[in-house]
Design a protein around this nucleic acid. Structure first.
Lengths: 160, 160
DNA sequence: ATTAAGATGATAATGATTATAAATTGAGAA
DNA sequence: TTCTCAATTTATAATCATTATCATCTTAAT
């Protein structure tokens, strides 16, 4: 059984446990997410990719599926201020959202896998009596290569 | 001269320096922002507040003004995932955006004024060759009072 | 006062997302 | 297998925030 099948199976369990079915459409949507784990796809992106192998799917279904998966904490819905929500498979081993480095020039986006915030979360708890359940940390700035003017993309801010 | 006048004057200088006029509408919009420094108002919020003392103002003007102020780094445009942009006067002494604590239950929002990220920014520079120009740190979770069920607001997520 | 650039206000247009309603699917009962 | 019901899907209309358009209005300099 491939890694992909394995992951799919695991998610299937989660869906079933909550009384949801893994329909063909949902499976296709998940597959796209699994095959693009590194990207931060918008709903439209996902829609286009699913359509390639399953042209009958409707945009609304993609939206609904992404919302469902977000509720189940299988994907992470995020927002980089460009007016579209982006979705990302949530790694089980990763309790929180990844941190991001976003190039201010070309929009290239890099994930930091480690969790750098445990200490600050304890501090928030101590100083504000606030129990953190999730967090978000994005840095905007310039990569060395981008400040050297080697940015590939002009301004289309496609997350990848 | 009141503190408000003082701030207004300072911003006027900034506008002039860039060749923009401080029109009545812009002044009114700024006043609302200055009088609500603690809040994170949406464009619509600002519009409603300005209308109270200047009913002739148009929504588009408010949007335009907020965008202008954002470009000049006088206000900070932010986004908490509820589908509306929120605006916040930017403190000169504060180089970056404030950190936020967001109650997952009622949406109450608290600012942390200190900058807790200098160390992590150095780390980003070291490990990724990424020069940070701005950052964003939000924690989602529960305040003690909210987990005790004393949340005031149900789910309207009005930032304040 | 005249003119031209900058601003504004009303409103139409856009784009992402959500709601609606009719049609389809699938699991279990008969 | 056939029936039935609830979940799901699809196409599309509706919504909501934001942006663009354009005619009108201000204002500062001539």
């Amino acid at each position: 059984m491939s890694k992909l099948d394995n992951q799919m199976d695991k998610i299937n369990q989660q869906l079933k446990a909550k009384g949801y079915k893994l329909t063909h459409q949902r499976a296709m949507t998940l597959r796209v997410l699994l095959e693009n784990e590194q990207d931060h796809l918008s709903a439209e992106d996902v829609y286009m990719l699913v359509k390639k192998t399953y042209p009958e799917i409707g945009l609304a279904t993609v939206y609904r599926t992404l919302e469902l998966l977000t509720e189940l904490h299988i994907v992470e819905k995020m927002n980089f201020g460009d007016g579209v929500a982006r979705f990302d498979l949530r790694d089980d081993s990763q309790e929180h959202m990844h941190h991001h480095l976003i190039c201010a020039k070309c929009g290239v986006l890099k994930e930091i896998q480690e969790d750098w915030l445990l200490e600050l979360e304890q501090r928030v708890q101590r100083e504000f009596g606030f129990t953190v359940t999730d967090h978000r940390l994005d840095f905007t700035g310039l990569f060395q290569s981008c400040s050297a003017g080697e940015c590939k993309r002009g301004k289309d801010t496609k997350a990848s």
